[in-house]
Amino acid sequence: MEQVIEVQALRREYVRQTRLFRSGKKVVKAVDGISFSVARGEIFGLLGQNGAGKTTTIKMLTTLLAPSSGECRVLGYRSFGEEKKIRPRINFIFGGEMGVYRRLSARDNLHYFSNLYLLSRAEQAKRIDAILKLVDLADRADDLAETYSKGMIQRLQIARGLINNPEILFMDEPTVGLDPLGARMLRDIIRRLREEGRTVLLTTHYLAEAEELCDRMVIINRGKLVAGGTPAQIKGDCATLEDAYVRLIEEDKP
């Protein structure tokens, strides 16, 4: 099976200033030598505590951040150095209310991003209405995004993430703050993407959601990989994925 994401011994370090002057510097290992791969058409989960390194990993995969060392390939290309070949074919959604132009309408946001994704006018006309309908924003498409509820902004983020019909969609906690209907709609969209043969890499703190959606997953703790496999493999003899997750994190305590 074609591996569309390949991560080998990936590390990312940040240098943080701990004192007022330059002498006080501390190196923080956000991602510390993780390896995994994702096959085309899979829904893959990246689980872990806050600060475990999930978002940093996604940022490296989405060409936003340079790895300190290790291999990070998307669609066969290095995410740092060959990013131009990756960018038209992927997209990403970060959870929360950021990442949209609030002083523009949903339609204007999508028009703008479709220009940045170099879509032709004909493609734009075809895709924008369909996506607005898909995320249930068609009725409010021409209202300014600043008048939207939190859930609507998040749905607009999802719409933006789908604008270029990506082969791989990266989602960082996409259901944070969504109401139950919104969260269900997102899960349906993710399943639909899988049916279309697209790959989704997602992080979430909702373990039931991860279990329901993911074909495979890895659990990261303090930048290192502590478990990987199908939800059933990770669950092992535990009653729920949450029990297994808590045990793994507890066992990894320093």
Partner: peptide, 18 residues
Amino acid sequence: YSGTLALIFATPASFPLI
């Protein structure tokens, strides 16, 4: 601060052009 800098940076459009 609005989280859109990363989004526009990672599009296929040239960042200097934006």
